[in-house]
């Protein structure tokens, strides 16, 4: 009995296409016993005996395309992305809504993460930016959408990925990225993968991870290093949920490298909310307003008072 034949038999037996009697003719009895002992044990297992863990009505209660799809961004996990690119496009109003169109707008002062219809790609819109797509423009043949403003895309592998704006078109193919047909200033930054941008006049530029360039006045500016920094509007936020002011201030002190002197403020009061990590003033305002606390800054120390 050759090894190949034995293998073939084991595979068929495992998939239920060969009976115990038949496999006995092929395998040494001892091996068969060992295999059966293992399979008998594994087959009796389950990760969890409770099989009633899901409530489907939780999902279907809401009509599709609503709620859960859009969520405020709190954290960022730049892992396992085929190509992630930032496209900053100076664009006029481009949108026209029609039947079967989906549109998301990030309000002023907040960025917005949107899961795209392919289930694996996401876009994060900078404050005041918007994205729109025709529902039937998402299929196995392509993924098409239109943006206005600034957007950060995490693109999962799949069919051609095309982003349009009034000023041009951006195309991601696998780990590639193309820009074409625009007139105004256009900034492309590549954070992972490789990107090729083509201007309206066919001038091309290839950007590797960590490089960015600006197309302005008929030419691509020399490549600059992104230093791996995500765009500033994309900064992470600190999340607090029923957190004592004592802990909130400790976090802020660490984030901004300042000292906070609490004075007669009650530090056991609880705060819930998200604050930025790149704007001390805004952070203090967000936290303190709800408790009616004032503060003044001397050097790198903040003095609080009721």
């Amino acid at each position: 009995m050759s090894n190949d034949e034995e293998n073939r038999a084991i595979i068929q037996w495992l998939d239920g296409d060969l009976s115990d009697e038949e496999i006995q003719k092929v395998l040494p009895r001892e091996d068969l016993l060992a295999y059966r002992q293992i399979l008998h044990e594994v087959d009796s297992w389950t990760p969890d005996n409770d099989q009633q863990i899901f409530d489907v009505t939780e999902i279907t209660r809401a009509a599709p395309q609503e709620e859960t799809k859009v969520r405020k961004i709190n954290s960022w996990m730049p892992m396992s992305i085929a190509a992630s690119v930032v496209v900053l496009i100076v664009a006029g109003v481009y949108f026209f809504s029609g039947f079967g169109t989906t549109e998301y707008v990030a309000d002023n002062g907040t960025s917005l993460e949107v899961n795209l219809p392919d289930g694996i790609s996401t876009v994060t819109l900078a404050a005041g930016s918007a994205i729109q797509w025709e529902d039937d423009a998402w299929s196995e043949n392509g993924r098409k959408m239109t943006i206005e403003g600034k957007a950060y895309f995490k693109v999962g592998k799949g069919s051609p990925f095309v982003v349009s704006a009034a000023t041009g078109t951006v195309e991601v193919l696998g780990t590639e990225f193309e820009v074409s047909g625009f007139e105004e200033t256009f900034i492309v930054a590549c954070y992972e993968g490789k990107v090729r941008a083509t201007a309206a006049d066919q001038q091309k530029i290839t950007l590797a991870a960590g490089e960015e360039s600006v197309y302005h006045k008929d030419a691509w500016a020399p490549k600059r290093n992104t230093n791996g920094d995500l765009p500033p509007w994309f900064a992470e936020k600190l999340e607090f949920k029923d957190t004592s002011l004592e802990e909130v201030f400790a976090k802020l002190e660490k984030t901004y490298e300042v000292k906070i002197v609490a004075g007669d403020v009650n530090l056991q009061q609880k705060y819930t909310g998200n604050v930025p990590t790149n704007n001390l003033k805004a952070s203090m305002k967000l936290v303190l307003t709800s408790f009616n606390i004032k503060y003044k800054t001397i050097g790198k120390t903040l003095y609080l008072s009721k």
């Binding site: 999902i59 859960t68 998402w138």
Partner: peptide, 18 residues
């Protein structure tokens, strides 16, 4: 695992027409 699985179903529902 349960949460991720549930999230996958939520996304399927939201994209059901595609």
């Amino acid at each position: 695992s349960r949460d991720f699985a549930q999230e996958a179903f939520v996304r399927l529902w939201n994209n059901c027409s595609k």
